[in-house]
């Protein structure tokens, strides 16, 4: 995917980021590029599950950039299971937390699909093999509240009934979010969460100069999801 990097740098003033990786050089490399991209942001680091949990409890980060293979505490061996459990716990305790996973084991995130589908904050996945530009896009998307999971994590279109209903109400009946929320008896914020989930399911993501709702409609009609 070719994307121009249109980071809202002006929005990055005094943002707080937490970067988690047990590999010191990787941690420093990630922090270094984030500082170049977000010079005003405060960037904190952690190398263990325990460390990041303490940091999140103390601060209210705008995004957590986290590796999967990390130790539970200092001196422990690194294990993917620690990262998976950490994410599960974070999504339960902080349902609106924005998370960007940066890992060489991103396929393990398949285990978290149910949790990702109900998470109300941003959640993106950046494999460590991605170029810098792509990684920064994923971090920015997470801060915008976007859900991004690679298409190869799905065997077919996976749409919950409430997401389909949002499509129908928006594109067949022309309702705005507030009216959709009233129809579905949920909050407007929940409707916006449904939008991010359905956009991820349809592989529709923010692009410069494009209206994402219109892109979503085009894709939904292409797939026959709306008449």
């Amino acid at each position: 995917m070719q994307q121009n990097l249109t980071m809202a740098k002006s929005q990055a003033k005094s943002q707080k980021m937490i970067v988690v990786d047990d590999h010191e050089a990787v941690l420093n490399g990630t922090v270094s590029v984030l500082k170049q991209q977000y010079p005003e942001a405060e960037i904190l680091t952690a190398q263990t599950v325990e460390g990041v949990q303490q940091l999140i409890a103390q601060t209210q980060p705008d995004v957590v950039v986290v590796d999967l293979s990390i130790p539970a505490t200092s001196g422990d061996p690194s294990r993917i299971e620690n990262g998976i459990q950490l994410l599960r716990t974070l999504m339960q305790q902080y349902p609106h937390l924005n998370i960007a996973v940066q890992s060489a084991h991103s396929q393990a995130l398949v285990r978290l699909k149910p949790a990702i589908h109900t998470h109300k904050g941003g959640f993106t996945i950046a494999d460590k093999s991605l170029p810098l530009k792509e990684m920064l896009i994923k971090v920015d998307w997470a801060m915008q509240g976007v859900i991004y999971t690679p298409q190869d994590m799905r065997t077919r279109l996976e749409l919950k009934s409430e997401w389909l209903e949002v499509l129908r109400l928006a594109f067949c009946e022309g309702l705005q979010d507030k009216a959709i929320a009233e129809q579905l008896h949920v909050s407007e914020r929940t409707v916006r969460h449904y939008w991010t989930q359905v956009q991820d399911a349809l592989s529709v993501y923010p692009e410069p100069s494009k209206n994402i709702r219109i892109q979503t409609e085009l894709r939904a009609r292409e797939l026959g999801l709306v008449d």
Partner: peptide
């Protein structure tokens, strides 16, 4: 490979990518 070599390659790549500045 994933825990060692990929991590080192990541570091080297990021170094070159950020050196453009």
């Amino acid at each position: 490979i994933r825990n060692d070599i990929f991590q080192e390659m990541f570091v080297i790549r990021r170094y070159f990518e950020s050196s453009f500045h």
